[in-house]
């Protein structure tokens, strides 16, 4: 699989990246997509290996991130899907794009709402992941407080509109949605120069 010039230009148009940056990200993609199965596609194990330095082990959040990258829902991440998703994490991507992406991450069951059970499930997963203990009482208190703040119509679930307002009030929630590295990918992956098709 190679990336043709027309593909690079199209991906640059569809994202926050320049053609050279798309080329540089292709170097990263090639590395990730051949780490376990050398087929030019990122499998979940390969993403897990890159993020956790181990190819095995369940992680709720990794599953959600992988699902959101995998636009075609065919169980692998193709290069264009990789570019589309990473573009959301670009420092210049809009706050709205980041807010929407975060909503989709947290909407575990993809019902169009972030439900109380989902928030509880995510908090419990982190407690388990980090070996932290929290009493059920305290957990309920934290979720109650969060919903009192976010769920303005008090229907027990957070809608897209409620989420927008909530994130506006708590912008630090989008901290993970920006990767400063993405402003500098051509420097981070200078080897793209050997394969470049264009000069930006």
């Amino acid at each position: 699989r190679t990336c043709q010039h027309a593909d690079l230009e199209r991906l640059a148009r569809e994202s926050q990246f320049s053609v050279n940056e798309v080329e540089a990200l292709y170097e990263l993609f090639k590395k990730l997509s051949c780490s376990i199965i050398d087929d030019g596609l990122i499998h979940k194990e390969e993403l897990r290996l890159a993020l956790f330095q181990a190819p095995y082990g369940e992680n709720l959040f990794l599953d959600r991130v992988f699902d959101l990258f995998d636009e075609k829902k065919n169980g692998v991440i193709e290069f264009e899907e990789f570019i589309h998703a990473l573009s959301v994490f670009h420092p210049y991507a809009s706050i709205q794009e980041k807010t929407d992406f975060a909503f989709r991450l947290y909407d575990l069951r993809q019902t169009g709402f972030i439900e109380r059970e989902e928030v509880q499930q995510m908090v419990s997963a982190i407690l388990l992941e980090s070996d932290m203990m929290l009493s059920d009482e305290l957990l309920t208190m934290i979720i109650d407080k969060t919903f009192a703040d976010a769920d303005s119509d008090k229907d027990g679930k957070i809608s897209k509109d409620e989420w927008n307002v909530y994130v506006h009030k708590h912008p630090s929630l989008l901290k993970n949605m920006t990767l400063p590295y993405l402003k500098d990918v051509t420097t981070a992956f200078p080897s793209f120069i050997f394969n470049t098709e264009v000069e930006d």
Binding site: L51, Q53, L62, V65, V123, A125, I126, I142, K145, N176
Partner: peptide
């Protein structure tokens, strides 16, 4: 410290932190 569940999720979940993709280059 964490009275906001989403604050807790976003700061504690390693699965949401994609920066290691670049750190492992």
């Amino acid at each position: 410290k964490f009275f906001n569940a989403f604050e807790f999720i976003s700061s504690m979940s390693s699965g949401f932190d994609l920066s290691s993709l670049f750190e492992s280059k």
